[in-house]
Amino acid sequence: MKLKGKVWKFGDHVNTDLIIPARYINSSDPAFLAVHCMEDADPDFIKKMCPGDIVVAGENFGCGSSREHAPIALKAAGVACVIARGFARIFYRSSFNMGLPIFESKTLCDLVQEGDEIEVDGDAGVITISGKEAGPIKIEPIPPFMQELVAAGGIMPYLVKKRSRG
């Protein structure tokens, strides 16, 4: 998987209330959720970003509520992937389950500026920042089982495939 996009930077502990505030989760319509993506972290995020852009954050991204509306909102807004120093575990599971690409990098957050363009090579496990000396930056390897989920397109397609194999 290769992705190229502009970086939007956020800090540590970006919780799912910031990613999609509870006042909008009386709906599960991805298009509606996308309009309010990251609203309480940056009210203009959705106006400024373009599909294909990349969210970069610090520790514990996606902490708090289990609402899958959070990865759904990011995906539906067109965020190509999220790269954080670390993820909260429910968000981590859900992203793989519903097909939002996420990567862990211990250093990217410190090396990249908002607005930089980066290229993520998921297969080689490296990130490069366009026009910068730094790099390539290492991505933490995706565990083999999670790779299977990604290849299948998420947990439900994975199960369907597994069950049909008998």
């Binding site: 289990s66 429910i90 859900s94 389950n97």
Partner: peptide
């Protein structure tokens, strides 16, 4: 706690 996809599974 898990997400909705895990609950579906």
């Amino acid at each position: 706690g898990v997400g909705s996809s895990d609950l579906a599974a």
